[in-house]
Write a protein that binds this DNA or RNA. Structure first.
Lengths: 156, 156
DNA sequence: GCTTAAAACTTTATGCTTGAAATTTATGCC
DNA sequence: GGCATAAATTTCAAGCATAAAGTTTTAAGC
């Protein structure tokens, strides 16, 4: 009988911790993104979305359909259209028509694009290394495991 | 003598883990943002950036200068201009001129804005609760601690 | 063969975001 | 006072992002 139910639904400490976690998550991600964005801009006159598309295309030498690309990147269809447009204009990617289905397009890297991405990726890895240098192996594993339980499919 | 040093500088496992962490971080944040964005849109016909501005203004009843607002939110000056413009158009915020400095503006919530934010914030907390429901208190603490070491000032 | 539905994209409208340039106001120095 | 410089904002151009609507092509039923 020592427990008294509060009249107002005061926020549970757990609830406060969850909010705090969300804010930290947001800050860490935004800071990192800002860092990467600036380095890509200054060093390669490029952007994060473009890098993401290049990285995905690089994993599929045969190319990808626009819809596959947007699925992989988890962005909207219309979004991919614009980014690919710019990559094509820069000569880093090219579109081919798909045999037997004239609705679809297949996008893939050009040789220039492949070479350019290789350089960007090498630097990118070094940037990530420096940004996360503080964490040791056990901490990395812990965090990877916990983050894996956020934003899964089963989340509804 | 069973170890052979590879000729190419193969990426260290630590480096791979760091990259993996970054990708997980990004996924968790984007998934959560997408969830919040959609709920704000459907439930309040609003957006995350607007919510962020409202939340900040709510903490400072006396109002804030545009520059203070952009510092708090860590976004560019020009960005804040547009968001505040829309909030003012919606009647949720208002601008007052600053005594003694005609360059500056002070932005604060209207009564309508304060009431609207209160409703949004209550729901927002519930959304966060549901999104992070999987993690127990110890896990929350662990993650908050580790995230606190990413993206700090001292990062250079 | 014709109709209808579905699929693969693109287009459009709107908003967020940045970085850079422009504008207006304030401050310091001679 | 007059002028350079700095500060507080806004404006602008470009790019990214979504949702919704539109286009063309393919597939399915009958």
């Amino acid at each position: 009988m020592s427990e008294v139910k509060p009249a107002a639904p005061s926020p549970s400490p757990l609830s406060k911790q969850r909010l705090r976690l969300w804010l930290r998550l947001l800050r860490a991600t935004r800071t990192t993104e800002a860092e990467l964005r600036e380095r890509l801009r200054k060093g390669h006159d490029s952007t994060l979305p473009r890098f993401d598309v290049l990285a995905t295309l690089n994993r599929y030498p045969g190319g990808l359909r626009m819809s596959e690309l947007s699925t992989h990147l988890k962005v909207s269809n219309g979004n991919v259209t614009g980014i690919v447009e710019r990559l094509v204009a820069e000569g880093l990617a090219e579109r081919a028509s798909v045999e037997g289905d004239r609705r679809a397009h297949r996008v893939r890297l050009t040789e220039t694009g492949r070479a350019r991405f290789a350089r960007m990726a090498a630097e990118h890895e070094a940037w990530i290394d420096s940004i996360f240098a503080d964490l040791d192996e056990a901490e990395l594993d812990t965090m990877i495991g916990l983050l894996g339980r956020i934003g899964q499919e089963g989340q509804q």
